[in-house]
């Protein structure tokens, strides 16, 4: 019998307050999907970083567009995809447009990507014509 699979999709207005909600939902779905307890902190932090980056990009360029998060469990891995709708937003670029408050908070250190890369077991960052897609995954424990 094939494993039960489930996808949870979340779309939220690009407000910093909603990043915490996204973190909590991602952690809950990861736990249900069988991610080891010891990895849940990493899921929570990495999802928060990806969502914070997307919120920052949207607030600068398209504040009316929601940030989208897709959470997939049921396979060998728990997969999280965070998508923004900012086509010209190159996440690996240093500097960038006119700084706003959130940019100033993060400085020029680009620490968010350092944290994501250090925490997620597997990370892929794709810059597409419609925006940036960050895909992260973690192993699911076998019964």
């Amino acid at each position: 019998m094939a494993p039960e699979t489930a996808t949870v999709e979340l779309a939220f207005s690009p407000l910093p307050a909603h990043v915490r909600t996204a973190r909590l939902i991602a952690t809950a779905v990861a736990r249900r999907g069988g991610v080891e307890e010891s990895l849940l902190d990493e899921v929570r932090l990495a999802v928060g970083e990806a969502c914070s980056r997307a919120v920052e990009a949207h607030r600068k360029q398209c504040p009316e567009e929601p940030v989208r998060v897709e959470l997939r469990d049921g396979g060998d891995r728990f997969v999280v995809v965070v998508t923004d709708r900012v086509p010209d937003d190159d996440p690996t670029r240093s500097g960038g447009p006119e700084p706003v408050d959130l940019t100033e908070l993060n400085g020029e250190l680009n620490l968010g990507f350092a944290v994501i890369a250090g925490l997620a077991d597997d990370v892929n960052i794709a810059s597409t014509p419609s925006g940036v897609e960050i895909t992260m995954s973690w192993p699911v424990k076998k019964d």
């Binding site: 929570r44 932090l45 928060g48 970083e49 914070s52 959130l102 100033e104 908070l105 993060n106 400085g107 250190l109 620490l111 968010g112 350092a114 944290v115």
Partner: peptide, 13 residues
């Protein structure tokens, strides 16, 4: 209870 890169940026600032 939780610290992300934004918090790190504030401390560095």
């Amino acid at each position: 209870e939780f610290l992300d890169s934004t918090g790190l940026g504030v401390l560095v600032g």
